[in-house]
Simulated scan of single mutants.
Amino acid sequence: MPNHPARSRQIKTEMARVFSEMDTEACRTFLASLSPRKAVNPLFSLLLHPEPLVKWRAVQGFGIVVERLAEESMEAGRTVLRRMMWQLNDESGGIGWGCPEGMGEILAVHAGLAEEFHQVLISYIREDGNFLEYGPLRRGALWGVGRAAEKRADLMEKASEPLLGFCRSEDAEECALAARALGRLKARAALPLLEVLRADTREVVLFLDDTLRPWRVGEVAGEAFDRLRRVSAEKRV
């Protein structure tokens, strides 16, 4: 999806300003004003932005832009996801910053692409799959799985098993993200682990519910635990 280089730089500069200064709704309005094909390359560039909020707005932007792109052409939507997959491949020579998160956002907003690509996203957290060895990328995949699970719990169900393992991780962010995802998946098998994690006072900074802020692991696990308890109670009625 080539862009004219000068125009692409202009879009990237304005996009970064909007993402940094505006709220979620204003960012959506701005993205809606752009051609989705011209927005893709600037979004990829902003996944590398040093300001965390700009990076997360870019992640959200992929959901908005690729949903529109796929309405025009499903193949164009697939191309974006394949580009993310390639960047996460060792052979690409890249790192793939933000790509697992972008994949999760796209799958959350587009049912057709979720049907086709959900197993790829899950594979990034499975040791018998395309497991991401590098911690920051793996945490990105856990965020992506949780985001997809918010809207596509039926498709993401097979993520439950590896997520249970991440609840025992020594990495606080992995624990928190796995706990949140398990709550969205309504994985009742996670209740004992989540009950233990509720007492975890370690603090992590997460982008959840359109907000980037500090969370305690126990706070995230507690929300997931309460969600699963409600599900269990409803099933008994």
Rank of each mutant, 00 (worst) to 15 (best):
G93C: 03
L81G: 05
I64K: 07
I122T: 01
V205C: 01
P2A: 03
Q10F: 11
A39Y: 09
A141Y: 08
L182K: 05
G140C: 11
V54W: 05
A39F: 06
F44W: 01
G104N: 00
S20T: 05
L107I: 07
E75L: 11
L182I: 11
G135L: 15
A32H: 12
R82H: 06
E51L: 11
L69W: 09
L107S: 08
R138T: 15
R188W: 14
W215Q: 05
G135V: 10
D23Q: 03
G104R: 01
G140V: 06
R202V: 00
T29L: 14
L48H: 09
E234A: 01
E150F: 09
R147T: 12
G112M: 02
R78D: 10
R138M: 13
A221G: 12
L212R: 04
E91T: 07
V54R: 03
R83K: 11
L34W: 00
L107Q: 11
L177M: 07
D210R: 05
E101Q: 12
G165S: 00
R227Y: 15
Y124R: 12
A58T: 06
A26T: 14
A76H: 06
L182V: 14
L164H: 13
T24A: 06
P36F: 00
A148H: 10
Y124V: 04
R236W: 05
R17S: 11
A179M: 04
C99E: 13
G146H: 12
I125W: 14
E219H: 09
W97M: 05
L132N: 03
P42A: 01
G93V: 00
R82E: 02
E14V: 10
M84I: 03
R198P: 02
V65E: 08
R188L: 00
Y124S: 05
A179L: 13
V109T: 03
E195N: 03
M15L: 07
I95T: 05
P136W: 14
Y134Q: 14
A221T: 13
L208P: 15
P2T: 13
S73A: 14
H49T: 03
L191S: 08
H110W: 02
V66L: 02
L137V: 14
T201M: 01
L191F: 04
R82T: 01
L88H: 08
M85T: 13
A108D: 01
D23S: 09
G63S: 10
Q87T: 07
G98A: 10
W56K: 08
V217I: 00
P136G: 11
F225C: 00
V196I: 15
L137T: 15
R28T: 12
M103N: 12
A233C: 09
E219W: 00
C99W: 01
L164A: 03
L113K: 02
E170M: 01
A141T: 13
G63M: 06
T13R: 10
A16M: 00
S232L: 02
C27I: 04
E174T: 15
R236Y: 00
P100L: 06
K55V: 15
A176P: 07
E14I: 01
L212D: 13
T13S: 09
L121M: 00
A108T: 12
G135P: 06
I95H: 12
G98K: 03
V205S: 10
R28G: 15
C99Q: 12
K55R: 09
V40K: 06
F166V: 11
L132M: 07
E72R: 12
A16R: 04
